[in-house]
Design a protein around this nucleic acid. Structure first.
Length: 191
DNA sequence: AGCGGGATTTTCT
DNA sequence: GAAAATCCCGCTT
């Protein structure tokens, strides 16, 4: 049942699609939360929109590290967003998690967000607030507690929608955003 | 339902 | 010094 994370060593575009339908298991104050990945975006060092485009810096160091670790960045003066590091060592690539669907521990997530329904996790900074992800988890290995990635059966190809990425000024042409069709937690439909 | 602006601070030029 | 892989609220239709 526990499948390998080996696919994270490969291409970031493939990994972004393969991560759809996988689960994040988060332990918060004795409560176990499970959330399914619904929406992702790929970022690669060859891509002007990526933080790793300009090379390795203190901030992007984790992106160039081993696959299967968490890259957390702070933005707009108040928000955290999280990525799953992809690719070989010394190659800067990662998949941004833009939306998840809560499966277990929904009450705790609603309490943390002071919201209910899709508003709990339908955006990259929202889900980080809900799952208590901040700088302290930057570089965390997703194979161990308190935050683990569980690989599930791949989502059917016909259920994956591919669009351009959200919120960037350069690199808008690339169709590197993926989400599960008809899932209510998708941050923004169409494009 | 959709648009516009403000919040707030890290990061790199 | 400016931009930033965003979110939320209030205002207008």
């Amino acid at each position: 049942m526990d499948q390998s994370l080996d696919f994270l060593d490969g291409d970031v575009i493939i990994a972004a699609q393969r991560l759809l339908g996988c689960d994040l298991i988060r332990n918060i104050d004795g409560t176990t939360v499970r959330a399914r990945i619904i929406e992702t975006e790929a970022y690669d060092q060859s891509d002007v929109a990526s933080h790793s485009y300009k090379g390795r810096t203190p901030r992007t160091d984790v992106m160039f590290g081993p696959a299967g670790h968490l890259y957390v960045y702070f933005t707009y003066g108040m928000h955290y967003c999280c990525n799953i590091v992809v690719g070989p060592e010394n190659y800067g690539a990662a998949v941004l998690i833009r939306a998840v669907e809560p499966l277990d521990g929904v009450l705790l997530l609603e309490k943390r967000r002071r919201k209910s329904g899709i508003e709990v996790t339908n955006g990259p900074a929202k889900l980080c607030q809900a799952l208590d992800i901040d700088k302290g988890l930057n570089g965390h290995n997703l194979r161990v507690k308190p935050l683990q990635l569980i690989v599930n059966k791949p989502v059917d190809r016909t259920s994956i929608i591919q669009t351009s990425r959200i919120g960037i000024s350069r690199g808008k042409e690339a169709q590197w955003r993926f989400y599960i069709k008809d899932n209510p937690y998708v941050s923004k439909t169409a494009s």
